[in-house]
Structure formats: structure tokens, C-alpha cells
Simulated scan of single mutants.
Amino acid sequence: GKTVVIPPRSKRNDQRDYDRHLYKARHLIENFFAKLKQYRCIVTRYDKTARNFLGAVHLAASVVWLN
């Protein structure tokens, strides 16, 4: 029941179909996580408790979203 999300290479003999909208959404999410990983406190997880770490993730995500 899985769907293909990544498009095939252009030189492939049998071109398969893929969902362009789902691929676009996946690309946005991957770019968001790449921007989120630029914050050192998120990558190295300085906070000891899950509550503080989640707060730092929310803060960094809001900064990324506003820029």
C-alpha cells in the first residue's frame, strides 16, 4: 500500500508515475528539518528534560517560520 514519492531519473527506460503534490510537500518538510538542524541546541540536545527540549524546538521552529 505504499506510494512512490520520489520521481525517477530522466534516463530511466520505464518511467514510473509519482505524486507531484506529495513530493512537493515532502521537499518542504525536508528543507524545514535542514533549517531546524542549523540550531546547535537542537542538534546536540543540551536540554535534559523533554519539556525543555520541546520548548527549544518550538522556539527554533517559530524563528525559522518567521524568516
Results as ranks from 00 to 15, higher is better:
residue 1 G to L: 06
residue 1 G to D: 12
residue 2 K to A: 09
residue 3 T to G: 07
residue 3 T to Y: 10
residue 3 T to F: 08
residue 4 V to I: 09
residue 4 V to T: 05
residue 5 V to W: 08
residue 7 P to I: 13
residue 7 P to E: 09
residue 7 P to A: 08
residue 8 P to R: 09
residue 8 P to I: 02
residue 8 P to Y: 08
residue 8 P to Q: 07
residue 8 P to G: 07
residue 8 P to D: 06
residue 9 R to Y: 15
residue 9 R to Q: 12
residue 10 S to N: 11
residue 10 S to I: 13
residue 10 S to T: 14
residue 10 S to M: 13
residue 11 K to W: 14
residue 11 K to Y: 09
residue 11 K to T: 09
residue 11 K to C: 10
residue 12 R to N: 11
residue 12 R to G: 15
residue 12 R to P: 10
residue 13 N to W: 15
residue 14 D to E: 15
residue 14 D to C: 13
residue 15 Q to P: 04
residue 16 R to C: 10
residue 17 D to A: 11
residue 17 D to T: 14
residue 18 Y to H: 04
residue 19 D to W: 02
residue 19 D to N: 08
residue 19 D to G: 00
residue 20 R to K: 13
residue 20 R to W: 14
residue 21 H to N: 10
residue 23 Y to H: 07
residue 24 K to H: 10
residue 24 K to S: 09
residue 25 A to T: 15
residue 26 R to V: 03
residue 26 R to Q: 06
residue 26 R to L: 06
residue 26 R to F: 03
residue 27 H to E: 13
residue 27 H to L: 11
residue 27 H to A: 08
residue 27 H to G: 05
residue 27 H to Y: 05
residue 28 L to N: 12
residue 28 L to K: 09
residue 28 L to F: 15
residue 29 I to H: 05
residue 29 I to Q: 13
residue 29 I to D: 12
residue 29 I to T: 04
residue 30 E to Q: 06
residue 30 E to I: 07
residue 31 N to H: 07
residue 31 N to I: 10
residue 32 F to Q: 13
residue 33 F to C: 13
residue 33 F to T: 09
residue 35 K to I: 14
residue 35 K to A: 11
residue 37 K to C: 14
residue 37 K to L: 12
residue 37 K to Q: 14
residue 38 Q to N: 15
residue 38 Q to E: 14
residue 39 Y to F: 12
residue 39 Y to W: 14
residue 39 Y to D: 12
residue 39 Y to C: 13
residue 40 R to H: 05
residue 40 R to G: 10
residue 40 R to N: 07
residue 40 R to P: 06
residue 40 R to Y: 10
residue 41 C to N: 12
residue 41 C to F: 06
residue 42 I to R: 03
residue 43 V to R: 10
residue 43 V to S: 14
residue 44 T to F: 09
residue 45 R to E: 00
residue 45 R to S: 03
residue 45 R to D: 04
residue 45 R to Y: 04
residue 46 Y to G: 07
residue 46 Y to S: 03
residue 46 Y to F: 08
residue 47 D to I: 04
residue 47 D to Q: 02
residue 48 K to N: 07
residue 50 A to L: 09
residue 50 A to F: 06
residue 50 A to P: 04
residue 50 A to R: 11
residue 51 R to N: 00
residue 51 R to Y: 04
residue 52 N to Y: 02
residue 52 N to H: 01
residue 53 F to A: 01
residue 54 L to K: 07
residue 54 L to A: 03
residue 55 G to V: 00
residue 55 G to E: 01
residue 55 G to I: 03
residue 56 A to N: 06
residue 56 A to K: 05
residue 57 V to T: 02
residue 57 V to E: 03
residue 57 V to S: 04
residue 57 V to W: 04
residue 59 L to H: 00
residue 60 A to P: 00
residue 60 A to Q: 02
residue 60 A to G: 00
residue 60 A to M: 01
residue 61 A to F: 00
residue 61 A to S: 01
residue 61 A to K: 04
residue 62 S to A: 05
residue 62 S to P: 00
residue 62 S to V: 00
residue 62 S to W: 02
residue 64 V to Q: 01
residue 65 W to R: 06
residue 65 W to M: 09
residue 65 W to Q: 07
residue 66 L to N: 02
residue 67 N to I: 03
residue 67 N to E: 02
residue 67 N to Y: 03
